[in-house]
């Protein structure tokens, strides 16, 4: 469960969105929509601790994020960012296995249990056959799936995804949203995803957070679409 209580997000030089208060239940699939620069990525990066929270309280499964260490937060929230990963001999397995980093010792060796979790994460996304492939040589769609498997291997209750459908064709986008909805329902993960694919996204998610210059709206996709977005 994710609770945002009067939070302000942005940077020290500029507050992007102020006074966000909402609650997301466990197992819900949530969409973040809105124009560029309205705070979608900033909100995701704030929740996962990459950008500091300017004001307010953020609770994950009842725990105040401000009181968690980076390692504790890593076992609560996983994130898939837009930043590209490349080089250094990384295979698809290496990238997925990095999701186990919060649970490893300083030398970073995987135990048999960690390997089993990585394999099961790859299997659940249907990419186990990519294991030994170089991450650099994968297609954009395969890379997204590898990063989602990494987030699953992190075994967190919350998964955040920043524009995972960018660069994907229509069929792959639909497949990705179907897969994420399935994960949220079957594994009880809270998934928050930002995307500009309004049509596809709104058909799959439970609720939508819609950002615009004057603030935000939070509600059912159909209701929000008819009352706010289509106008």
């Amino acid at each position: 469960m994710l609770e945002l209580k009067d939070i302000h997000i942005g940077y020290t030089s500029k507050v992007v969105q102020a006074g966000i208060t909402l609650s997301i239940d466990a197992g819900q699939f949530i969409a973040l929509a809105g124009n560029n620069g309205c705070g979608k990525s900033t909100l995701l990066k704030t929740i996962c601790g990459v950008i500091p929270l300017l004001k307010g309280t953020l609770l994950i499964d009842g725990k105040n994020v401000a009181e968690l260490t980076a390692a504790q937060l890593a076992s609560q929230v996983a994130v898939v960012l837009t930043d590209k990963i490349s080089g250094f001999n990384l295979t698809a397995f290496d990238v997925v296995a990095s999701g186990r980093i919060p649970y490893l010792n300083s030398f970073g060796f995987l135990t048999e249990e960690d390997r089993a979790i990585v394999q099961s994460s790859m299997n659940s996304i249907g990419i186990f056959e990519l294991c030994e492939r170089s991450y650099d040589e994968l297609s954009d769609g395969q890379k997204q799936k590898v990063l989602i498997a990494k987030a699953l291997a992190q075994q967190t209750s919350v998964i955040l995804m920043d524009e995972p459908t960018a660069f994907l064709d229509y069929k792959s986008r639909v497949a990705l949203f179907t897969l994420l909805k399935q994960l949220s329902k079957e594994q009880g993960k809270t998934i928050v995803i930002s995307s500009h694919d309004i049509d596809i996204m709104f058909k799959h998610v439970d609720k939508v957070i819609y950002f615009n210059e004057s603030g935000y709206q939070f509600g059912e996709p159909d209701k929000l679409y008819n009352e706010v977005i289509s106008k």
Binding site: C48, V79, I85, V95
Partner: peptide, 10 residues
Amino acid sequence: LNEAYAQNLG
């Protein structure tokens, strides 16, 4: 991976 991912990995 990168600094943001490293931070998210604790």
